[in-house]
Design a protein around this nucleic acid. Structure first.
Lengths: 150, 150
DNA sequence: CAGATCGGTTTCATTTTGAAACTCACAGGA
DNA sequence: TCCTGTGAGTTTCAAAATGAAACCGATCTG
């Protein structure tokens, strides 16, 4: 994939993987486009219908996601219709989307408020995603730290 | 916590937990502030030093994060200095930050490019965070779907 | 008291976003 | 062939967000 920012851009914090990821998909729309791509959306019109996003912004975000190797743009044989599909790198964002979703379920809804649910093949809700230490035990924020590059 | 958006705001997609989470922390800075809070930053000045963010924007983001129950603002006995600390909801974003970090490590760096590393108490790198199905086996994007609310 | 520090607010220019109108290519039907 | 609709944009322009810099006020430190 393209490991660089678009035209002239510089990383907010070049050594930090969190910062680079946020530079690539940390805006109001990119992650929602990826969410919908994971849920089966493939065309410009379909993304637009689901998101209610302005046309020019969608054009721009799709272009960026393609540039960064997260989506792949194909011309449908049809001629006019295009298809946007997740690349392997795009699909690899699944864990991040699940983590954000689960946090939202826990903290962004009132206890009685309904929300959509992510389920597996058998319609069962996913277990909570938790960082583990090397030993396999859950790892807390306090028990970890960032080792800066030499 | 405060399960609502700031003054007059409406959710991008009220029923989707991913969208709500993105509405709360899906901007260029919030996640990086949270990252640094997880790494020990607690003061206005310290966040500013680490991020190079404009003062007014930092003021605004800290206020929003406090409003949304992700950070807790305390007055240090000192008098002038304040402390911003993660609430339990804030600490619960750990999984999401780890997922974004790991994706960045895999896809936003050239193979030979150095980056900071998240390690556990014993200095060992964390294992990859992967969504699992109910059975305990890794779950692919294709093997899951979103069940909309009734 | 003078100066530095901390945590802001205000001002103003630049950038990004969004809504709406316009364009262009193609396909199907009358 | 002409008309109409659809898909995928581009252009234009106003509104909102962002960022740099100056200013402010309280509190410590010498």
């Amino acid at each position: 994939m393209d490991v660089s920012l678009a035209a002239g851009g510089t990383w907010t914090d070049p050594a930090c993987p969190v910062a680079r990821t946020v530079d690539l998909i940390g805006d109001r729309w990119s992650l929602l486009i990826i969410r919908d791509a994971m849920d089966g959306a493939t065309s410009f019109t379909e993304f637009r219908r689901r998101l209610g996003i302005a046309r020019n912004i969608l054009t721009d975000r799709l272009r960026r996601l393609v540039e960064h190797g997260i989506l792949d743009k194909g011309a449908d044989t049809d001629g006019r219709r295009h298809t946007y599909r997740l690349t392997p790198a795009g699909k690899d964002l699944f864990a991040a989307v699940v983590a954000l979703r689960q946090w939202g379920e826990r903290h962004a809804f009132a206890p009685d408020e309904p929300h959509s649910v992510l389920v597996d093949d058998h319609g069962r809700e996913l277990p909570e995603l938790r960082p583990l230490g090397r030993g396999g035990a859950p790892l807390s924020v306090e028990a970890s730290h960032v080792r800066k590059t030499a």
